[in-house]
Design a protein around this nucleic acid. Structure first.
Length: 553
RNA sequence: UGGGGUGUCGUCCAAUGGUAGGACAUCAGACUUUGACUCUGAGUAUCCAGGUUCGAAUCCUGGCACCCCAGCCA
């Protein structure tokens, strides 16, 4: 990662540093609500906020915006902490919670009541909607708006004491019922919710609204640059109003556009539906656009960070081609992933002139991009598997893999020539019989003759069986949100393909959960959480580019 | 409809009055013991209309399109 990614927010930070606006401080935060798992869009915010702090010698807080006990859960808190850590963001020792500030927020609410800047309102939700007016019609005053500060204070204290049923009353800021900005039409600060909170239990029966709480949380933590997404731009005047009314530290809010990806959905509501409706196998199903799914699938956190850095930060709504993420992942893994041979759809090959029972240990390079990765021994014998796709009985044009009478190279082994095709009663090919050239050991011919194709292979007797899971895009259409009908109508029925009996080279038998490899000529793979010794499971993180497959289209 | 925002290759991002550039994608070619990687080349864009200026993506005027806001969600 470069030292200081350039974008308009960095420009603002530079200007603030130059003018000494914050005394040289830069303090950002990532403020998720624990009501679901984090997704790739959150990863952008984590990258942005944490990298801004890091690049400018500042600090970065992780803070849970846990103001709505009805939707939140400890499970989500735990998963979010895991994800943020995995992303490598340095949030220091302390994890912050809005619920830690409830007492202070309440004290400030009383202060606004006493100053005549907030009042208790007894309108029902329906009435409140009606009184709020519409875009082009001003709202009208709630009956509670004219009550004295003394009476309001009494009512507020009784709200807190639990004297009123859920939803019966609210505390509202007294701002402007005629404002063109509807957020300023006396927004709700507190509502009565009789639900236990995952951290404060039943201490409270009134909870601060996001609009009231969010700016206070930033203020309390000394945040300098409060970075959020575009939809909160309309709320900024409200946060300004609260902070100024209270006369407390006033962070600068800056809005940026969230990043959407093609072929997926990114709203928490829809992600929850996919999980609850069993359209996927949980929040961390590798097809999901969640951070935990990306991790399980084998995407390195550095690649995810680099992806968002490459994309950049602007205020333009965008939908990013998911191929862009795949390209970044390939780029990272090409340099770092050890190469191995794995045959996904095995076709048996017998080398007819191979000395019976002989096994040869061949040296194979671990990573041509990284000499320090060294070599490993791979056993070769007269009974092998190759990829079924690598053979065509009647080769199509430009197919330069194996076919009857044709010679190819087995990677790092020998040249072989197909002499016979064995079929079962139904006509399906069950085995290939080939001869090898003993003088081509290692894959070079002393007489200088060339072969076009190089195939990967495994020795049948030494192969390790494994389950391999191939993933495709979760949706068939680029923008499921915009497509006709319900987004669920556009799920890709072939988003998961299970290969139950792939054959892997011997060394993969010891692969540990989370380890990443390039299966040569196939793709990048990662050992899945479900994997156990003797029952290996691999996820395809991303396939290798395949110009042959593309040419055939 | 009132308020707030955004318009640059197919996509994402630069260019801050001076040759519209990069990345991904696409196409063509070279290289190759991974049809990968790498390398070379190509094509494609300033929302529209006026104006200011020697010169406009950038400044001005007027349009147009798209996004957000009428939760006691965040």
């Amino acid at each position: 990662m470069s030292d200081k990614p350039r974008h308009f927010i960095q420009d603002i930070v530079d200007a603030d540093l130059a003018s000494n606006k914050w005394g040289g401080k830069v303090h950002t935060r990532f403020p998720p609500e624990p009501n679901g798992y984090l997704h790739l869009g959150h990863a952008k915010s984590i990258w942005l906020n944490s990298s801004l702090a890091k690049a400018n010698g500042g600090k970065f807080n992780l803070r849970f915006d846990d103001t709505n006990p009805a939707k939140e859960d400890q499970e989500y808190v735990d998963s979010i902490v895991d994800d943020v850590r995995w992303m490598g963001a340095d949030f220091g020792e302390k994890i912050h919670f809005a619920s830690d500030y409830f007492e202070q927020m309440y004290a400030w609410a009383e202060k606004l009541v006493e100053a005549g800047k907030a009042y208790v309102c007894e309108l029902t939700p329906e009435q409140m909607t009606e009184y709020r007016g519409t875009f082009d019609k001003p709202g009208k005053d709630s009956p509670g708006r004219g009550r004295s500060p003394k009476d309001n204070l009494d009512l507020l204290r009784r709200m807190r004491a639990g004297e009123f049923p859920a939803g019966a009353k609210t505390l509202r800021a007294k701002i402007d019922m005629t404002s063109g900005n509807i957020n300023l039409r006396d927004p709700v600060m507190y509502r009565i919710v009789k639900a236990p909170h995952h951290r404060t239990g039943d201490t409270w029966c009134i909870y601060p609204s996001y609009d009231w709480a969010h700016g206070l949380e930033d203020s309390l933590e000394g945040i300098t640059h409060s970075i959020c997404t575009l939809e909160f731009e309309n709320h900024r005047p409200l946060y300004d109003w609260f902070l100024d009314a209270l006369g407390i530290h006033h962070p600068q809010q800056i809005e940026f556009a969230r990043g959407n990806l093609t072929y997926t959905v990114m709203s928490k509501r829809k992600l929850l539906e996919l999980v609850k409706g069993n359209h996927v196998r949980g929040w961390n199903d590798p097809r999901m656009p969640t951070i935990s799914a990306a991790r399980r699938r084998g995407i390195p956190s550095q690649a995810l960070l680099k992806f968002w850095e490459d994309i950049g930060v602007t205020k333009q709504e965008s939908v990013i081609d998911v191929g862009r993420l795949e390209a970044t992942v390939r780029d990272f893994l090409n340099a770092s992933a050890p190469r191995r041979m794995a045959v996904l759809r095995p076709l048996k090959v017998t080398i007819t002139n191979w000395p019976a029972g002989q096994v040869e240990e061949l040296d194979v390079v671990n990573n041509p991009e990284d000499e320090s990765a060294g070599t490993r021994k791979v056993p070769f014998s007269g009974s092998l598997y190759i990829e079924a796709d690598d053979f065509q009985e009647v080769p199509e044009k430009k197919f330069f893999r194996l076919a009857p009478g044709k010679e190819v190279r087995l990677r790092a082994a020998y040249f072989v020539t197909c002499t016979e095709v064995v079929k079962d009663a139904s006509g399906a090919i069950t085995e290939l019989r080939c001869t090898y050239d003993p003088k081509t050991k290692g894959g070079d011919s002393p007489d200088g003759r060339k072969v076009k194709g190089t195939l990967h292979w495994v020795s049948a007797a030494h192969a390790v069986s494994a389950e391999v899971r191939l993933y495709d895009r979760l949706f068939k259409v680029e923008d499921p949100d915009a497509a006709a009908g319900n987004y669920l109508d556009h799920l890709n029925p072939r988003s998961l393909e299970l290969l139950k009996d792939a054959k892997l080279e011997r060394s993969l038998g010891a692969a540990a959960v989370g380890e990443r490899f390039q299966f040569e000529r196939v793709g990048y793979f990662c050992v899945d959480l479900d994997s156990k010794p003797g029952a290996l499971v691999f996820n395809r993180t991303v396939p290798l580019k395949d110009s042959w497959a593309k040419a055939k289209d």
